[in-house]
């Protein structure tokens, strides 16, 4: 008997089932289909200005920084300012995201390169799929538009998110993922990012910049 068959047989023996019970199959199919939400904290269930304010507060709680601009055209200047304020080189790597590419980068003196990171980039920018106000989390999806390596290898990660994509809770983001990729399908990677990289492994003292970015800066576009 293969390991697989053996394991299934043992599970079924222990549970006292044979695996073909219609009721059990119906229950499982139903749950996978309906995906009940469970308990959703009230905290995030606000809208408009209030939701944006909560998102920003939670982003800051996670030790990231956040700034707000009123149109995509202002994003390059905001990023240049962030880099200048931290004495960082005026370089920036990004993927093929059309929203980012359409921004007026020539307004700044930033040197832009494109593609995934191979470990030599200090600064990178990604466009988020969405944000989650409940916890100040950014949701990013992998792909040529926003390669996952940009989220982890550079020292300084900047994430641009549209205010209209900031949801109350994780569940709202899953609904959008299903709409974009089809029910039951996912991009290779969905990254939830909440603050810069950190470790508490030495004497339980919180230190920033473990393996991922030392700084996380969020630019919210309110247009």
């Amino acid at each position: 008997m293969s390991a697989r068959d053996d394991i299934f047989a043992n599970i079924r023996r222990s549970l006292g089932v044979n695996g073909s019970e219609t009721i059990r199959r119906q229950i499982v199919e139903d749950r996978l289909e309906r995906a009940p939400k469970g308990v959703i904290p009230k905290r995030g269930q606000v809208s408009g200005e209030e939701r944006l304010a909560l998102f920003k507060t939670m982003v800051e709680t996670s030790l990231a920084t956040v700034t707000e601009v009123s149109s995509p055209a202002e994003v390059p200047q905001a990023i240049a300012l962030f880099l200048r304020n931290h004495n960082l080189p005026a370089t920036l790597r990004m993927g093929e995201d059309l929203r980012l590419k359409a921004m007026p980068w020539s307004d700044t003196s930033l040197e832009i390169t494109y593609g995934p990171s191979e470990g030599r980039d200090l600064n990178a920018v990604s466009h988020a799929f969405g944000g989650i106000a409940e916890s100040g989390t950014l949701a990013l999806v992998s792909g040529p538009e926003n390669p996952s390596t940009l989220n982890f290898l550079p020292d300084n990660h900047i994430i641009v998110v549209s205010a209209k994509d900031i949801a109350s809770d994780y569940e709202s983001v899953w609904n959008r993922v299903r709409f974009a990729y089809g029910k039951g399908s996912m991009p290779r990677t969905v990254n939830w990012i909440t603050g810069p990289s950190r470790s508490g492994d030495i004497e339980q003292t919180l230190l920033l910049g473990a393996h991922g970015p030392r700084r996380l800066h969020v630019v919210v576009v309110c247009d």
Binding site: P187, T189, V190, I193, T194
Partner: peptide
């Protein structure tokens, strides 16, 4: 676990890199 609202990185991985992907 640590008293955080949520960990810094929560990563959902599904299969290998897709044909258009630049990394993974």
């Amino acid at each position: 676990a640590t008293g955080q609202e949520i960990s810094v990185y929560t990563t959902f991985s599904t299969g290998p890199r897709r044909s258009a992907d630049a990394d993974g």
